[in-house]
Simulated scan of single mutants.
Amino acid sequence: MTSSRLSLLLAAVLTAATVSAAPAVTPPPQTDLARQWGLPDDFYPESITADSRGNVYVSSFRQGAVARLLPGQQQAQVFIPSGSNGLVSAQGLVVDEARNTLWVCSGDFGYSTAAPAASALKRFDLQTGAPMASYPLPGGGYCNDMALDSKGTLYITDSIQPRILRWRSHSAGLEVWAQGGVLAAGRSGLTLNGIALDGDDTLYLSKVDAENYLVQIPVNADGTAGQPSQVQFPRTLQRVDGLRRLTHGQLVFFENDVGGPQSAISLARITGETATVQTLADARTAPTPSSGTIVGKRVYYLNSKFSQLLAYPPQQLHQLPVGVPFSIQVLDLP
């Protein structure tokens, strides 16, 4: 794979995770003069989520680690250290409080400071960050993003193979839930990116390539996949990275237009197979938003700065600037 194709692939697949029904979360303290919270330097954050106690978790694509921001703090600290449990580039995050678990997608495109390893779904203790389990992707692939339903079933996007994987509480590993058809690879040769559940019965998915639609898949009563369809948008979506359910039929989505001018955070209102879009933040305030999490009437989001990271091919990462600051930022919902 050429360095230019690798950079395109990386720019497209970096994403986040979503839960079906967000728990009630106590937000970090907030004043008009404190609209952000610090992350470790050189973190290059990828995904963000929160638990019901107000703890915020952020994954690092570069460090292969997870940071945690406790209520009342202004600076997040490393919670899961680099490389723990074979974690390489940490991507999608899901809090699973019923199973005392923090789920993390791990991938490897050569940009992490952690030791190389195959892509896998990683399980950590939610209280301590200790490793609990690791689930390889059957037949290879790239674990990108996840959504959790009320029964504890995880749905996982694969960005290399055209499929959605599933983990159930009684499963020893991952299984293929849906594949092929509208999930097929796009122009880049890549497939799925973000994922969100609307209740337990409807999945929404974004494709890696810029498209004017999201994929919608019903979840049948017996747990099988229904017939996929396309939800048409009034404009092209520029690499939708993270998807977050706000309420029934409403999604907040994050366009991580790495290297381009059209990054944005927007609100989609979906009716049937059509959607309207309201822009909440454009590239001026959200230049490369890889993900966000909804806490009350606010969105806490990340500026990934992936444009800077991906300007260097893996063999030239020794030239990457050091001491680059990162933060969790916030915007108010309408």
Results as ranks from 00 to 15, higher is better:
192 L>P: 01
192 L>G: 05
193 N>G: 13
194 G>S: 11
194 G>V: 08
194 G>R: 03
195 I>E: 01
195 I>M: 06
195 I>C: 04
197 L>Y: 00
197 L>T: 02
197 L>V: 04
198 D>A: 03
199 G>F: 10
199 G>Y: 07
200 D>Y: 04
200 D>E: 03
201 D>F: 12
201 D>W: 12
201 D>A: 15
203 L>P: 01
205 L>F: 06
205 L>T: 05
206 S>T: 09
206 S>R: 07
206 S>E: 09
207 K>S: 14
207 K>A: 14
208 V>G: 10
208 V>Y: 08
208 V>W: 06
208 V>T: 15
208 V>A: 15
209 D>N: 08
209 D>P: 07
210 A>C: 13
210 A>P: 12
210 A>I: 11
211 E>I: 09
211 E>S: 14
211 E>F: 12
212 N>R: 13
212 N>Q: 14
213 Y>P: 04
214 L>W: 05
215 V>Q: 06
215 V>G: 02
215 V>L: 15
216 Q>C: 15
216 Q>N: 12
216 Q>M: 15
217 I>R: 03
217 I>P: 01
218 P>V: 06
218 P>A: 08
219 V>H: 00
220 N>A: 14
221 A>M: 09
221 A>L: 13
222 D>Q: 10
224 T>W: 06
224 T>N: 09
225 A>M: 09
225 A>K: 08
225 A>I: 10
225 A>N: 08
225 A>H: 09
227 Q>I: 12
227 Q>E: 13
227 Q>L: 12
228 P>L: 10
228 P>S: 11
230 Q>P: 06
230 Q>L: 15
232 Q>V: 14
232 Q>R: 15
232 Q>C: 09
233 F>P: 02
234 P>G: 07
234 P>Y: 06
234 P>I: 06
235 R>S: 13
235 R>P: 06
235 R>N: 11
236 T>V: 13
236 T>Q: 13
236 T>I: 12
237 L>C: 11
237 L>T: 07
238 Q>P: 08
239 R>Y: 09
239 R>F: 10
239 R>I: 11
239 R>D: 06
240 V>D: 02
240 V>A: 12
242 G>M: 01
243 L>F: 05
243 L>H: 04
244 R>F: 03
244 R>K: 14
246 L>E: 07
248 H>V: 08
250 Q>R: 11
252 V>H: 01
252 V>T: 05
252 V>P: 00
253 F>C: 00
253 F>N: 00
254 F>P: 00
254 F>C: 01
254 F>M: 03
255 E>K: 03
255 E>G: 04
256 N>Y: 02
257 D>N: 13
257 D>L: 09
258 V>C: 05
258 V>S: 02
258 V>D: 01
259 G>P: 08
259 G>I: 10
260 G>I: 04
260 G>Q: 11
260 G>T: 08
261 P>S: 12
261 P>N: 11
261 P>I: 07
261 P>D: 13
261 P>Y: 08
261 P>G: 08
262 Q>F: 12
264 A>E: 08
264 A>W: 02
265 I>Q: 05
265 I>T: 06
267 L>R: 05
267 L>V: 04
268 A>K: 00
268 A>T: 00
269 R>F: 05
269 R>C: 10
269 R>V: 15
269 R>G: 09
271 T>R: 15
271 T>W: 12
271 T>I: 14
271 T>P: 09
272 G>W: 11
272 G>L: 10
272 G>V: 10
272 G>C: 10
